[in-house]
Write a protein that binds this DNA or RNA. Structure first.
Lengths: 134, 134
DNA sequence: CTTGACATTGACATCAGTGTCAAACTCTAG
DNA sequence: CTAGAGTTTGACACTGATGTCAATGTCAAG
């Protein structure tokens, strides 16, 4: 699969896919052409990355987090104290963000229901959908 | 209270407080000096704004959301369909962000607990604290 | 073979959010 | 009165994430 296909499936511009790769968030195989080639797994990863970027997570952290997921999925992950401390630090930042967003979400929901526009809420029902087009 | 005091209490640089005002997110009274003067309410608002910015909410939306909270607190808020649709749209974006962040949060917690660094989690216990220094 | 759609790299531009510096003014402390 | 700390405005710089353009290469269809 080529970069244009990935762009179509994820809604992420090819420019950004290359950018993410440049930032070390992605590794793309190359065909004999020199063209980048992607698998379905990569597509998933691209939309995950895009989502995290939109959520305000800096690319540096994204790299760490995605690597962490992989490591966590397999056996006991290695994790020196210094790294753990950094993670704990980022954790509070993330929890703050969640709190802020949750509050804003509730505000919007509240307004929408109280103004007889509750019908619009159903459209947003699938909020946690992984590959949300946004 | 002057801008420096606000900065100290919120951890937000004076430069940014002025910037937020310039973006229409804040309104500051002026003393005879010309100095900006703030109340406790303003302090609260500043840290709310800073939190939302960190959460990746663009300033335009922040303005709308904060105004919305005020309107929502009082009586029945006015809300034409077009605005409601825009809100519903932003809502799904916010829910996506929450989903992303929640997943990342869980990943970090998981790693931390599984690497005997669970002690660091207690430090982050007050995650939802309003005036989190971050 | 030619055309058109897509890819590659690299440079440059833009936008939001911040940092930093400068020149001038205000206030408080000594 | 003077020194130092804080404030004002305004300008310029920088970073991160993106958009856009240019020159060139690749490939599938006609």
């Amino acid at each position: 699969m080529k970069i244009g296909d990935v762009a179509r499936r994820t809604g992420v511009a090819p420019r950004l896919v290359r950018y993410y790769e440049q930032q070390g968030l992605l590794v793309a195989d190359r065909a004999a052409n020199g063209y980048r080639t992607y698998s379905d797994v990569d597509v998933e990863r691209v939309s995950r990355v895009a989502g995290m970027v939109r959520a305000g997570i800096p690319t540096r952290l994204i790299k760490v987090l995605l690597d962490l997921e992989v490591a966590s999925a397999s056996e006991a992950p290695a994790c020196p104290r210094t790294v753990a401390e950094m993670l704990a630090d980022e954790l509070v930042g993330i929890e703050d963000k969640i709190a802020c967003l949750t509050r804003s979400r509730d505000t919007i929901r509240d307004v929408l229901t109280r103004t007889e526009h509750a019908a619009l809420l159903s459209e947003a029902a699938a909020g946690a959908t992984p590959s949300a087009g946004r």
